[in-house]
Simulated assay, not measured.
Amino acid sequence: MYDYNQHAQRDTKLTDPVVTVRQIGRFGFGGQAATRIDHALVYSTPKGTYVPYLPPNRPRPRTARLYTAVYEVDMGSHPVQAEIALPSDNDAHEFTATVELTWQVVHPAVYVQSGCRDVPRLLIGELEQSCRPVTRGFHITSSAAAEDELLTAVRAGKPLGEGVGLTVDWTVRLRRDADNIEHERRLQAARHELELQRYEAQKIAFYQQHFARGGVQAWALHLARHPEDTRLALESMEKHQLALLRSQLDQVKTLLGPDGGEAHELDRTRQLMIEQINQALAPDTRVPLPTPELPELPPGYGRRPHPPTGRERAR
């Protein structure tokens, strides 16, 4: 008769490898109980000691009468996965550690004598105790460095589960917790937006500085190379600057293409920019301006052609 029986099968997920416990009467078992051949048997003596029989060894019936109880111990490998929270150098932020363990009983008598009944809890507790002092020395953004130090420190210490007769293979992967990752993403988005604003402000300052100094030529030539900036340049101007540009528009057109040329003689993108400037300068009219992706002008574009020689005219 069993005092304790987990009714464990080969696919049963165990937290305690002691699958059965039976008391032995004065006259032995009264018949040999069936046990799995790959399980160890650990016998307790009246003096409180434990005698293991590793598979496939079993005691003789007469020998079994010398014991008071028998523990049937599973010696298979058992995987465990878990996540634990580990502190950083700031108590407001924690690392998340993903733990993978594979444990196995190698000294069944030691395990039985230890009184342990929950192996995963024992091992994760030992691991957490070793890891917490290490991760406390690292900032939450230094998860990679903390993980390296953690692995080194735990491997240098006492092997996990050794004190209760186990052998354990383990690994730990460290990362920031989900809240901190999301917080960092928001900060990155804010920094990106700030950089864009600074870039736009630098552009505006560039146009305002050149136009304030009467540098319409430099302003127009820059827009000829970067027509996508036309809207930004016009919006950055004061009213008196727009009036000055209106008076100098003919000069701008000259810089952007052949003087006095027909619309079809200008390339499409430069003609489009002149139309945008005309719309922006029209009284009481502010039309949203497109920002096409435009190619660079070929070398020498926009220069007046030399008058044909007599020989060329003859041809």
Rank of each mutant, 00 (worst) to 15 (best):
Y2C: 03
Y4H: 14
Y4M: 12
R10I: 10
K13V: 12
L14E: 06
V19P: 03
R22F: 07
Q23K: 09
Q23F: 05
G25S: 13
G28Y: 07
F29V: 02
G30F: 13
G31I: 06
A33Q: 09
P52D: 12
R58N: 07
R60W: 08
Y71C: 04
P79L: 04
I84D: 05
A85F: 04
A85I: 06
L86R: 00
P87Q: 05
D91E: 10
V106W: 03
V110Q: 15
V112L: 09
R117Q: 14
L122E: 06
R132C: 08
R136A: 08
A145Y: 05
A146R: 10
T152Q: 08
A153K: 13
A153G: 10
V154R: 08
R155F: 03
P159N: 09
T167D: 11
L174D: 04
R176A: 14
D177P: 01
E182T: 14
L187D: 04
Q188K: 11
A189I: 02
L194V: 01
E195V: 01
Q209C: 04
G214D: 08
V216W: 11
R225L: 13
P227C: 00
P227G: 01
E228Y: 00
D229W: 07
T230C: 14
L232N: 11
L234T: 02
M237V: 01
K239L: 07
G257Q: 06
G257L: 08
E265S: 07
R268K: 11
N278H: 13
N278M: 15
L281C: 02
A282L: 04
T285V: 13
V287M: 07
V287D: 07
T291V: 11
E296R: 04
P298V: 09
P299F: 10
R303D: 04
G310T: 08
A314M: 02
